[in-house]
Nucleic acid binder design. Structure first.
Lengths: 232, 232
DNA sequence: GTCTATATCATGATAGAC
DNA sequence: GTCTATCATGATATAGAC
């Protein structure tokens, strides 16, 4: 791919990226269906036809909006996990370390306004509950490796937890995380006063890690149905 | 309003309900934007114009789809809370009791297929992260009273927790709950084997309550930034 | 690669007969 | 209250000049 990089190719790449950036922002604000190709291209300073030229269809554009960021995030997640595991040697990792390894890349992207991606983070939380099959499938494919690795690490970190129980708790944890990140706005729903430290992603990490670790480490016995519960 | 209930009025009521039921189901499967009035009326066996006759607009229909169920759920939530509080007398409630009071009405509706509403529950989880302002606003209005009451009860149940911290944790908990209920499907994302006890809502309740209680009760000190952390 | 112009289609909403 | 017919709009996608 080092051959014949014409000046036009550079411009083309730039257009492609401007479209992706514009789409990302508009998708966050309005959702996928409510965002038209006209809006996207207008906002990107590109031509209406350019989306179909560069991506083939609106659906393919959506896929690429997710792919572009998730590739980075998930690679960094695995890297964080590798590092933490090699640090720990043979011992199982502390659950805190695991949660941090999973969340740090997201929060890093959320902070770094120069590389972009700040907006994307809010999309990510919504993607799980999307009705559109396209998005859910894409996400499943992109996450399968990462979640397997983290699941295995969690099983080692919490050896007393049955796997089935763990799977559910990871699911709950993903929900908590996605609300934490995507819906920071809606905290106002329950806050009677101003909360506005939304932008301070560090504070979110500090708050959610203990919440999730405690949830994952909760005693299993408590989940026994009330009727079957025995005195301790 | 007891005057002149003609036979037509009964039919009209039935049509109205059929439209609401059809819309509810289709919204779950496809989302609001992707669902057309034509689909809804066809599925309801009603005329295309009937939506605008009965509701005035598509947006108003969306509002009513939510209102109809949330009125019931939130009234039951308050009733559950009242009952638990009067049982406890002067003592603060156990956090478990609070979480159960909040979740039971939802799970009850999810189970009861005769009264309908099974589909709605999946909508509910998605509503928080909806980009559309209409839905988010509606939800905020409908929830403000319930969340205030539960917040006050939680402050009593967890007196050592600063209010600001509590607000965030409730937010996380809402995320965990909405994933638990709305996205039971996506558990398969991380499960290598079959999980399919989705329909058994009791088992979800048994699993999520300890998770949330543990998260809410987590020590606050742990959320101090690493740099500021002091030895215990 | 980019642009204009356009084909094709589906949408929400409404007017007006019954 | 229900129906048919239709309007106006905006959507995605493409053809073809530059």
């Amino acid at each position: 791919m080092t051959v014949s990089r014409s000046p036009e190719a550079k411009v083309a790449g730039a257009t492609r990226e401007r479209i992706l950036n514009a789409a990302e922002t508009l998708f966050v604000e309005q959702g996928f269906d409510a965002t038209s190709l006209r809006q996207i291209t207008a906002s990107a300073g590109a031509n209406l036809a350019s989306v179909n030229y560069h991506f083939g269809s609106k659906e393919a554009l959506v896929r690429e909006v997710f792919d572009r960021r998730l590739r980075v995030i998930n690679a960094e997640r695995l890297a964080e996990l590798d590092e933490a595991e090699s640090e720990a040697g043979d011992r199982p990792l502390a659950p805190e370390k695991l949660i941090e390894a999973f969340l740090l890349p997201v929060l890093r992207m959320s902070k770094d306004r120069t590389r972009g991606g700040h907006a994307f983070i809010r999309l990510l939380g919504r993607a799980y509950t999307e009705p559109t099959e396209t998005v859910r499938k894409l996400l499943a494919e992109e996450y399968v490796e990462v979640l397997e690795r983290f699941k295995r690490a969690l099983l080692r970190a919490l050896p007393e937890l049955p796997e089935k129980e763990l799977v559910w708790r990871v699911h709950f944890a993903l929900g908590a995380m996605s609300y934490a990140i995507a819906g920071a706005d809606s905290v106002q729903l329950i806050a009677s006063y101003e909360v506005r430290d939304t932008d301070n992603v560090d504070s979110i990490l500090q708050r959610i890690v203990p919440f999730i670790v405690a949830g994952l480490s909760a005693p299993v016995s408590a989940s026994t149905p009330r009727s079957e519960r025995r005195a301790a």
